[in-house]
Amino acid sequence: MDLNTLKEFSAIATEGSFAAAARKLGMPKSTMSKRIQDLEAALGVRLIERTTRRLNLTAEGALVLARAERILADAGEITRALSEPDGAVRGHLRIAAPLLFGQAYLGQIVAASRRLYPDLTLEIVLTDSQPDLIEEGFDAAIRVSHPADSPFVSQTIARSHRVTVAAPELCDLVIDDPADLAGLPILLYGIGLVQTWHFQQGKLDKSVRLAGGLAMTSYFALRDAAIGGAGVAQMPLFLVERDIAEGRLMQLLPNWACPAAELSFVYPSPQALTARLRAFRDLLVQAFPDGTLHGGVLRPGG
């Protein structure tokens, strides 16, 4: 399998026919057809379904196309790096990120990227799953609590602190101990109506198992429910700090800290850290100079 064959296969998929691809690349249609047949034979799968009226990629063909385009892009990057060794930021990045982080911050971060690096194109996929970087063609991912034994390279971006909050009308009674939450209506993030909340005070750890009357998989919706007086919620500080400052929410148990979550920038290997990936990573780190999401230079919606 060589780069020319991959380039021809990509052209066929883009142009929609062997004839159009051959014209675009300036080569005989018969030569191109033979090379694709050889590629199919080498892989042991059919890549293209041919009919008298149209051409369609098979599922295997679509997979090969995605990989081929990535290989061709990397080959182009190598060529540019050798011919223009100026460290310029150009090319394409495909990044996966958690939904909440992406909604709160990435719009501003990618806007900065576009201003600074107009030759860099970005594909940002917001998902709370953890896609396989290699199999799904991602250059990197932003992940919460990335496992220490992962084979991938991981660099901490920032820590996300959480607080326990409720609307002022629910805070008539001062509570000093996490166990006191059991007497209050509870709002849960996630699936299921029973959850364990963890608290720390110095070296003291305390866990409280709570049953809630409402569970949601959106922190934005959960914040609105808390502001509306539906109950007590444990929320990322960056998402509710303005609501606390302006009196829409009050922090409960201020002397008890919730364990922080760590956001990491993850990529396959040290060799994968291209100039464009390094530039994007540096933008992320610079956005949170104190190492916390709530103390960063960006503000959700700001």
Results as ranks from 00 to 15, higher is better:
Gly301Cys: 15
Thr5Met: 03
Asp149His: 10
Leu222Lys: 10
Tyr105Leu: 13
Ala19Gly: 11
Gln286Thr: 12
Lys24Cys: 13
Val144Trp: 02
Gly107His: 14
Leu126Ser: 09
Arg159Leu: 05
Pro85Ile: 01
Pro168Asp: 02
Leu65Ala: 09
Gly76Leu: 01
Ser30Arg: 05
Cys258Lys: 09
Asp224His: 13
Asp119Cys: 05
Leu253Ile: 13
Val232His: 04
Leu214Arg: 14
Val266Asn: 08
Glu77His: 03
Pro147Glu: 09
Gly91Glu: 00
Val125Ser: 01
Pro259Leu: 06
Asp139Gly: 03
Ala96Val: 03
Gly229His: 13
Glu15Gly: 01
Thr156Lys: 14
Val285Met: 09
Ser160Trp: 02
Tyr189Trp: 11
Pro185Tyr: 02
Pro300Ser: 13
Gly247Pro: 08
Thr196Lys: 09
Asp180Ala: 15
Pro259Tyr: 00
Leu3Met: 10
Asn4Ile: 07
Ile134Pro: 01
Glu77Thr: 02
Leu6Arg: 08
Ala41Thr: 08
Pro289Trp: 04
Leu298Lys: 12
Glu262Lys: 15
Ile48Asp: 12
Ala13Gln: 00
Val285Leu: 14
Leu122Tyr: 08
Thr274Arg: 12
Thr52Gly: 09
Ala166Ser: 03
Arg276Lys: 13
Ile95Asn: 05
Lys34Ser: 12
Gly16Asp: 14
Leu65Asp: 04
Ala182Phe: 08
Asp177Tyr: 07
Leu106Asp: 05
Ile48Asn: 08
Ser218Gln: 06
Thr52Leu: 11
Asp172Arg: 12
Val110Ile: 14
Ser33Ile: 02
Ala230Phe: 14
Met250Phe: 06
Pro98Lys: 10
Leu3Ile: 09
Glu49Ser: 15
Ser145Trp: 00
Lys206Ala: 09
Trp256His: 06
Glu69Ile: 00
Leu39Trp: 03
Gln37Lys: 08
Ile227Phe: 01
Ala96Ser: 14
Leu249His: 04
Asp86His: 11
Ser17Glu: 04
Phe9Gly: 01
Gly16Asn: 04
Ala13His: 01
Ile186Leu: 12
Ala221Tyr: 07
Val232Phe: 10
Arg50Thr: 15
Ala88Trp: 04
Ala66Ile: 00
Leu214Ile: 13
Asp282Thr: 15
Ser83Met: 13
Ser30Lys: 02
Met235Glu: 07
Val144Arg: 14
Pro268Val: 02
Ala111Trp: 15
Met216Ala: 05
Arg67Lys: 10
Gly87Lys: 11
Asp243Trp: 03
Phe280Leu: 14
Ile244Met: 09
Gly202Ile: 07
Ala22Asp: 10
